[in-house]
């Protein structure tokens, strides 16, 4: 196991390096002058002096190689410079917003797992009956309905019936659990529904595959009850791909956070991205995009390690 962990850790280094390079390429090489964009140059006349000063502030007056080196060195030290909008270090701004997004992400994952595994199981066991059709339509629906619209409908409902107003400040659960719950419940539903839709489909299809295996036929043949066959024999063996999926769908989760936090005006990392884009705060945009890729890679590393821990065949390959 130790060699496997080491090998996997070494493998993520080139991926992260590549991701850092790609972010740099997107932000600097794509036609368009960032300094000009920040000053609103696409809308009208810009003072030449201001432009030079802005380029200097961003380090855009230096050769591309030097810029790239500075960026990489910053990435290695986890120093992404200062926000152009607030003047605060990007990492500090990020840490303020992290607890909210983390709570939202964890709760949404939990809710979706609690909904999707029983539903997916039900659909697989009753394949091609009305139960299966209903579950499939609801889950395809979860993929079709935009997350932000689910959020808008929640707010619409809350505004019309309860005179709801957006929360002003994040209250952590350890300070006031009830206020925190009121604030988080609808965003969690919004993000969780979409997430659950994906996991339900995956649970259904892997369970369907497992249910056709020989050992399941054996389990049936020796006269086990349906419950024992499905839960003890089939579900256990179909969980591995679902665990992997929870990792890969992390990307969906991030996308969900971006729109959901915007709809509910929650001050999390997702909305930080949108705000940074709106304010043309490029150091922040650049850092956040790299950090989403970074967290995606880390989450998938953890998933792979769990997977290898569950299934020894993988780590000896």
């Amino acid at each position: 196991m130790r060699t496997y962990i080491l090998k996997r850790l070494l493998l993520i280094v080139p991926t992260l390096l590549g991701a850092a390079t790609l972010v740099f390429v997107i932000m600097r090489v794509i036609p368009g002058d960032v300094a000009l964009l920040i000053l609103g140059g696409d809308q009208g006349h810009v003072d030449e002096k201001q432009l030079v000063a802005m380029r200097q502030q961003l380090g855009l007056d230096q050769p591309l190689v030097v810029q790239f080196g500075t960026w990489l060195w910053g990435v290695v030290r986890f120093d992404f410079g200062k926000s152009l909008w607030t003047g605060q270090p990007v990492v500090e701004e990020l840490l303020i917003r992290l607890p909210l997004s983390l709570e939202l992400a964890l709760l949404a994952t939990l809710v979706s797992v609690l909904i999707s595994i029983p539903l997916g199981m039900l659909a697989a066991v009753r394949q091609d009956t009305w139960v299966d059709y209903v579950v499939r339509v609801v889950s395809i629906g979860g993929l079709a309905i935009p997350g932000f619209w689910v959020g808008i409908l929640c707010i619409l409902f809350l505004v019309i019936f309860f005179g709801w107003g957006p929360p002003l400040e994040f209250t952590p659960p350890w300070v006031d659990p009830w206020t925190n719950f009121q604030m988080m419940v609808w965003p969690v539903v919004t993000v969780g529904y979409r997430y659950a839709a994906v996991t339900t489909r995956m649970t259904r299809s892997t369970l369907l595959e497992v249910l056709r295996e020989d050992y399941i036929r054996t389990a049936w043949a020796k006269g086990l009850r349906e419950q024992a066959v499905v839960i003890r024999h089939a579900l256990k063996n179909s969980m591995l791909p679902v665990i992997t999926l929870i990792g890969t769908e992390f990307a969906f989760l991030i996308g969900g956070l971006v729109v959901t936090e915007t709809v509910f005006t929650l001050n999390g990392i997702g909305r930080f991205v949108v705000d940074a884009v709106a304010h043309r705060d490029y150091p922040v945009v650049q850092a956040l995009i790299f950090l989403t890729a970074f967290s995606f890679v880390i989450v998938n590393l953890l998933v792979d390690l769990t997977y290898a821990w569950f299934d020894p065949r993988i780590r000896y390959r």
Binding site: T15, L22, V23, G32, L37, G255, V258, R280, T292
Partner: peptide, 24 residues
């Protein structure tokens, strides 16, 4: 393959957001 792996490390919406923000 490596290049595609790296591109896959970015959530779809985030990557689109970044590109759209640069292109206008």
């Amino acid at each position: 393959e490596r290049l595609m792996d790296i591109l896959l490390a970015f959530p779809q919406l985030i990557l689109a957001l970044a590109i759209a923000s640069i292109l206008g």
